[in-house]
Design a protein around this nucleic acid. Structure first.
Lengths: 247, 247
DNA sequence: CGGGGGTTTGACGAACGTCAATCGGGGTGG
DNA sequence: CCACCCCGATTGACGTTCGTCAAACCCCCG
């Protein structure tokens, strides 16, 4: 094992400990469970699918760098992104059979993943209750975001949807240390944003323009800065999830 | 206990056995677990909430007759229905903390429910594996419908959404014996359909008119008949859920 | 016979989609 | 180093879908 590989593994498990430690208290024992993940680390090209729709990704993995998504494509090519998968999130990691884990999952950018065969369906970590808790909460957060998404798509305008999505991304990225002071990197094209918000590319562009004009955000070179968090939260009726309510 | 009360209890548990028996094989032992539910049966008026958003319904119950829904209401009164709750479905019945069970749940019609305190969060039925399975599958189906709903709202037209929703309702009602030969009772106003499909009342009406004109459905006196199931499924790209895939 | 909730219709307007052209920036080959 | 190119962002013009408003209608019930 080369030293830079060991460093990469260390970085990957650090990320997981940081992310899941924010969801539930991790004992030294729990942390060790993450440290013991054997991998391998894998580099995945943009566009690659992690699974076939209807089957869980095998092996289960954690996303370490890059962005992925769950999506469904209709017969005529219309695509809907169900949700984003961000660094720290599991891909095919689920305790009980979960339809969310059966969606078609695809890399939106070049990614790095860490295989974690032990985290397969029906996992059981009796000696690591913190780890078990954290993973369950992560699953619940996925479900909660799906509900938010339904409300967004069904009853919010383009501006509100975009604002809501940006706040959601900020919250999630902040959890893993990838957003600071309301600034974060979004390696997506506007086409992807369109498929996530249920809008057309052109209208996504116009909506972003408006958010910019109103000095609510900046968005340059794939870096988003939320200039007026409270105003944006008002527009979107966004509430950050309450992790403690999901135990 | 009056005799008609005993009959009502019998009907209620029959419904549950029929419904959950369609999801997983129920042993005699499993069935008994349903038969032993003590209740009480409760009649609930239309409009009543079963829980406060963010808290699970207490006690957990099963819906026996009538329709309910999960919904969220925005600050300015816009309402989005997350999903329908039909006879046989649980209200606050969930094994692990589930955001879907934390939605605000409301009776859309006068309802009858059967309280089932044993089916509270973290249930454990080691001696009734069939019952446990069936309830998990029911939870998974809820989640799968949420995903379908996202695709519908994000990338389907009014006509496609309505077609999809009607097919979903037909499938679910057929499972509990409330739809036969593509005909079922829908005790909803068009306003409710609007909040479920993310459309306006007027546009729901126009969409229904078009489905009628095209001889795809009949809809009279709250009874829907699907005249051309295959054509409707093509329009909606509807796939009936595969229960076996969710184990 | 009157009333009220829900449905239906028409006219109009706003939000959003489509098409097409242009722009802009980073990468690449000469 | 420069010209070119290509993908994605941006803009404008226009079309469609869907929302809004308001009136009429319908049916069930008292």
């Amino acid at each position: 094992m080369k030293p830079n590989h060991a460093a990469a593994m260390r970085e990957a498990t650090d990320l997981l400990v940081r992310r899941y430690g924010a969801l539930a208290h991790l004992s030294a024992e729990d942390e060790q469970a993450f440290r013991r993940i054997e991998g391998p680390l894998e580099d995945v090209r943009r566009g690659r699918q992690f699974n076939v729709e209807g089957r869980r990704a095998n092996p289960p993995r954690f996303l370490i760098t890059g962005w992925a998504c769950r999506q469904r494509v209709l017969g005529d090519g219309r695509r809907k992104i169900i949700g984003f998968i961000l660094p720290g999130d599991g891909i095919g990691v689920c305790q009980r059979a979960s339809p969310l884990s059966l969606c078609c999952m695809t890399a939106l950018t070049d990614c790095r993943t860490l295989a974690a065969p032990a985290f397969d369906i029906g996992w059981d970590f009796p000696d690591q209750p913190g780890l078990d808790n954290a993973l369950r909460i992560a699953e619940a957060l996925d479900e909660a975001r799906a509900i938010d998404h339904i409300v967004r798509l069904g009853r919010q305008t383009a501006l509100e949807r975009m604002a809501h999505l940006l706040l959601e991304l900020n919250w999630r990225l902040a959890q893993v240390g990838l957003a600071e002071s309301w600034r974060f990197h979004v390696p997506l094209t506007q086409e992807v944003m369109a498929d996530a918000t249920g809008l057309s590319i052109v209208h996504v562009n116009r909506t972003i323009q408006q958010l910019r004009r109103d000095r609510l955000i900046e968005w340059r070179h794939h870096v988003v800065t939320i200039l007026a968090p409270e105003a944006l939260e008002d527009i979107a009726e966004y509430k950050a999830p309450d992790v403690r309510a999901l135990i």
